[in-house]
């Protein structure tokens, strides 16, 4: 654990900024800023997550030319952005770890994601005080103070910060700073306790995956949520772990482009098959799918919930669909009950 003063941290980041982009929370999303002016960030999370930096909402995969009925590959534009992202919350870091696993940690490595992700230095900031919509502790009680996959992880104490790192490149950046003394380590312990205490009462998530799985057919369980769902894609677009994409082709004047776009399980086209069959034909199946995937399938398949409790979908849903309620309700109903 290192001690770092506010202006030292600003210098560190702004120096990095000479050679790379600086991203920081601005308004409701992460934006590129010319320089970092403050290390203070708002309580809780931004409306939109940082996923767009590694997983842009539109990304060209390759381009081609069409001549005399033949297609000729033109380019494979692998991205090579370099940046430092300041102000990630711990729930965001858990989500990035899940994204990493999805895009690069299993059988197939997605080079487009990999290139952007490798180019980014992650600066996480521990939560001093959770927002009322935060529920990261439902999945892991220590989240708000966990460094996760941050290169540099910061604990903002009164007028200086403590910093730790989980990667080699992070360690290098911190190597010249002094080690934390007894007193600041004590302060850190108090900070952690206060942070964790600011979260809501934990809802039981042991066995959640099985409970939700069992409720698949229970119309009554889903009815109230379904009744108000508009079927838009907001919840999935703001979610830091939602990673589904669509691939499209576009040909203008014989020059073609293959690109990918954010997709959403809430859209009817998501599952529409070429035959015309749609296995999730109505909004009901699509609304249910999001919860099944986040709270059950992902856990059963990969051992991790695909909800990190950031509360973004809760805040952003225009119809006020609240995933916390779905989790809580699954604890109190038995199969077939209402």
């Amino acid at each position: 654990m290192k001690i770092i003063k506010t202006d030292e941290l600003l210098n560190l980041i702004n120096n990095l900024g000479k050679e790379m982009d600086i991203w920081a929370p601005v308004g409701d999303s992460f934006e590129r800023v010319p320089s970092l002016k403050t290390v203070e960030i708002p309580q809780g999370t931004t409306h939109f997550s940082a996923k767009e930096i590694f997983f842009p909402k539109e990304q060209t995969l390759l381009t081609y030319k069409r001549e005399d009925g033949n297609f000729e590959l033109d380019s494979v534009p692998l991205p090579d952005a370099k940046g430092v992202i300041f102000g990630l919350r711990s729930c965001d870091l858990v989500a990035i770890a899940e994204m990493d696993e999805f895009f690069t940690g299993r059988t197939y490595t997605d080079v487009y994601y990999q290139k952007l992700r490798e180019g980014m230095l992650l600066f996480g900031v521990a939560c001093k005080q959770a927002a009322p919509t935060c529920f990261c502790n439902w999945f892991d009680p220590d989240v708000p103070v966990n460094p996760g996959v941050a290169d540099v992880y910061l604990y903002p104490l009164e007028n200086y910060l403590l910093a730790t790192s989980t990667t080699e490149r992070g360690e290098k950046m911190l190597s010249s700073f002094p080690d934390a003394d007894e007193e600041s380590l004590e302060k850190l312990e108090r900070f952690k306790l206060e942070s964790i205490a600011s979260l809501p009462e934990k809802q039981e998530t042991d066995g959640l995956a099985d409970r939700i799985y069992e409720l698949f057919d229970d119309k009554q369980f889903w009815q109230g949520t379904f009744d108000r769902c508009l079927g838009c894609g907001i919840c999935t677009f703001v979610c830091p772990t939602c990673h589904c994409f669509d691939i499209q082709e576009e040909i203008i004047n014989r020059v073609g482009r293959r690109y990918r776009l954010w997709d959403s399980c809430q859209f009817s086209l998501f599952t529409l098959e070429a035959s015309g069959l749609n296995p999730r034909p109505t909004r009901f199946e699509r609304m249910r799918q999001r919860f099944m995937d986040k709270l059950s399938y992902s856990y059963k398949e990969f051992g991790k919930y695909q909800c990190v409790g950031c509360g973004r979908c809760v805040v952003m849903c225009p119809a006020n669909i609240d995933i916390r309620e779905v989790i809580a309700k699954s604890c109190t109903v038995s199969r077939g009950g209402g």
Binding site: G231, C232, G233, I234, W262, P318
Partner: peptide, 22 residues
């Protein structure tokens, strides 16, 4: 626009079985 289609889904009179964008 992020093309979430909330404007369409929330509009009472946007109810086409297949929207032209789809």
């Amino acid at each position: 626009c992020i093309r979430c289609y909330a404007c369409r889904e929330a509009c009472p009179t946007c109810y086409c079985e297949e929207c032209f964008v789809d």
